[in-house]
């Protein structure tokens, strides 16, 4: 998909959570860009800061523990970090929206679907109820819910998971937003419905040209939907690049290890390779590369000094000292 101007840019974003056990550096210097009509995949294992990055963008870090300590969040060039809560409320839903993982609890069980769509529409625009009702019906049709007029009267418990998630999608894009953050939206769906849902998201993106930040840990989904990928480890992005290139030639040892752990359909293996050890605790990070304790190639310098980011290809970057020495293609 052709990419337009940059809609969302994070510049060296740091977000900390103060907990009983110390300050957790959940997001520790993340920089990324998402362009109009582009999908950026944010991958990494559980607890590496993916969701915290998303919540930081919306300025919805858990309160009072979470705080953005440094960096910029540029939405169409406008920094969100200094914005007041009141200003953010006008941005959320209208310019940035989000879909969460679990469709079962994403809808309010006591209201009909139509009611909730109308409510969502009403937050950002005025109009007579009948008109909003028609808009809600149109929104349902756009997410390919059959018989939308009847479905508006349904309660969430009368719908399947896949259909609920589509309604959540309809609410999310009702703004209509310029940036959509999807936090593992297909994890709770079975595989056929996953595919339908991804196709639907692509359709919506084609129509509205929104920028999508897609958080997942499923490489299959990344390959299916993402134009570019950013791999996150322990609060930092260790490698980013165009999906095809990053999949073909991962440069960071962590990415390489992750790729090696993905089962393949054309090979049969006894055991999948795993990465030894555990990710570091985010309140006691090592001074050097965070992956160094688990990295097969780590040397003294990796232990001491956090690696700089090196360009290893067109738009392809890796934060690894080995990327410096090895010539880029």
């Amino acid at each position: 998909m052709s990419a337009g101007p940059v809609l969302l840019e994070l510049r060296d974003l740091h977000a900390h959570l103060s907990t009983r056990w110390g300050v957790v550096r959940a997001v520790d210097g993340v920089s990324l860009t998402v362009r109009e009509g582009e999908t950026l995949g944010l991958v990494g294992e559980s607890g590496c800061g993916k969701t915290m990055t998303a919540l930081s963008i919306l300025r919805l870090l858990p309160q009072p523990a979470g705080r953005i300590v440094a960096g910029q969040i540029l939405l169409e060039g406008e920094d969100l970090v200094p914005k007041s809560e009141r200003q953010m409320r006008r941005i959320r839903g209208r310019r940035i929206s989000m879909i969460l993982q679990d469709p079962q609890t994403s809808l309010n069980p006591v209201f009909s679907v139509g009611n909730q769509l109308v409510e969502a529409l009403r937050v950002h625009r005025a109009g007579p109820r009948r008109r909003l009702r028609a808009l809600a019906q149109e929104a349902l049709r756009q997410v390919r819910v059959a018989a939308p007029a009847q479905r508006l009267r349904d309660f969430p418990h009368q719908m399947s998971g896949g259909m609920k998630q589509r309604v959540v999608g309809a609410i999310a894009v009702s703004g209509p937003p310029r940036v959509l953050i999807a936090d593992e939206p297909t994890t709770a769906l079975d595989v056929t419905i996953q595919l339908q849902y991804l196709t639907l998201l692509e359709e919506i993106q084609e129509r509205t040209r929104l920028a999508m930040l897609f958080i997942t840990h499923d490489f299959g989904i990344v390959a299916r939907i993402c134009d570019r990928v950013a791999v996150m480890y322990a609060g930092r992005i260790v490698e980013s690049g165009p999906t095809r290139e990053l999949f073909a030639a991962p440069r960071h040892p962590y990415t390489q290890a992750l790729m090696a752990a993905v089962p393949r359909m054309d090979e049969s293996v006894e055991r999948l390779p795993a990465i030894d050890g555990q990710p570091p605790a985010l309140q006691r990070l090592p001074p050097g590369c965070r992956f160094a304790p688990r990295c097969r190639h780590a040397d003294d310098r990796c232990q001491r000094e956090y690696p700089a980011v090196f360009a290893v290809g067109r738009e392809h970057e890796a934060a690894c000292w080995r990327a410096e020495s090895s010539p880029s293609r």
Binding site: L58, M88, G93, R94, S97, T105, S106, V123, H124, A172
Partner: peptide
Amino acid sequence: RDFVALARVHGC
């Protein structure tokens, strides 16, 4: 539950 979080996301 998520719908409360989503309400925040939606600007409520």
